[in-house]
């Protein structure tokens, strides 16, 4: 992949050199700028399905970390039995938001409340979203949830008194305002990444099945795993280009 990038650049440079439009100086400047810029971190997640034991720890820790209300579960572990008796196995597939590079949800949002950040994460602007739920029907992974305004106040005293600072924004008490009445989803615990911490699911995973890292850095563990030949993505035919990879 890196090699490909270099090749692409050379051909671009050749193109500029050979161009007879007298824009050489400008082109050279442009290329220099391009190369000088440090590559930004672009997050990706790798989940090793061989290591996942289906314990649901990720689901629970995600709930605790993001204090998601009833009915909103950024992460679930899909458990499917495959095969016929006696040749049956169970496949556990943890499903966060795929942070797609071509997100179907972002495409349809009428107000640009859903957008792609430079770091690869697909974010929702809680104050802009109007709650039309178009993105929910468009997401091929069922990764989006509507916040109906329910809470755990019955089971957990003080649930409403504090909300997680998702996307690094302080939210204060849980009242009738957004995120109630809008759509929510996993954001790779962006607020934790900002502090230099791993997402809650990665940190707590019992089987150590989850990895988070920078796919722009060819030496990162996720890059190596992604290029290991074991990596697959869900519903590749959807052209969403997910940033969550599974190791078969």
């Amino acid at each position: 992949m890196v090699k490909e990038n270099i090749k692409e650049k050379i051909s671009r440079r050749d193109f500029f050199k050979s161009s007879s439009f007298g824009a050489k100086a400008w082109a050279a400047e442009l290329l220099a700028e391009d190369e000088a810029r440090p590559k930004e971190t672009k997050w990706a997640m790798v989940i090793d399905l061989q290591k996942c034991i289906g314990c649901d720890t990720c689901t629970v820790s995600c709930k605790a970390e993001n204090r998601t209300p009833p009915g909103v579960t950024y992460n679930v572990v899909l458990k499917e039995k495959v095969g016929t008796f006696p040749n049956v196995t169970k496949i556990n597939t943890p499903r966060p938001c795929m942070q797609c590079d071509q997100p179907a949800c972002k495409q349809v949002c009428p107000v640009k409340a859903t957008y792609k950040m430079k770091n690869g994460i697909v974010a929702i602007d809680y104050n802009r979203c109007i709650g039309c739920r178009y993105c929910m029907v468009a997401c091929p992974y069922g990764a989006r949830y509507f916040d109906f305004g329910e809470n755990y106040e019955q089971e957990m005293l003080g649930y409403n008194s504090y909300q997680t600072n998702e996307y690094g924004v302080e939210k204060g008490e849980r009242k009738k305002k957004a995120p109630v009445g809008i759509v929510r989803k996993c954001h790779f615990c962006f607020h934790r990444l900002q502090r230099g911490e791993e997402p809650a699911c990665v940190e707590t995973c019992l089987g150590d099945a989850r990895y988070i890292g920078d796919l722009n850095n060819p030496d990162s563990i996720v890059s190596k795993l992604v290029h290991s030949g074991r990596a697959v993505r869900l519903k590749e035919n959807m052209a969403t280009e997910p940033r969550v990879y599974y190791l078969k």
Binding site: K106, Q107, P110, V111, R128, I130, C132
Partner: peptide, 12 residues
């Protein structure tokens, strides 16, 4: 918001 903000890729 649907009148003020515009997403050129969204049919809606």
């Amino acid at each position: 918001h649907s009148l003020v903000y515009f997403n050129p890729f969204s049919v809606l």
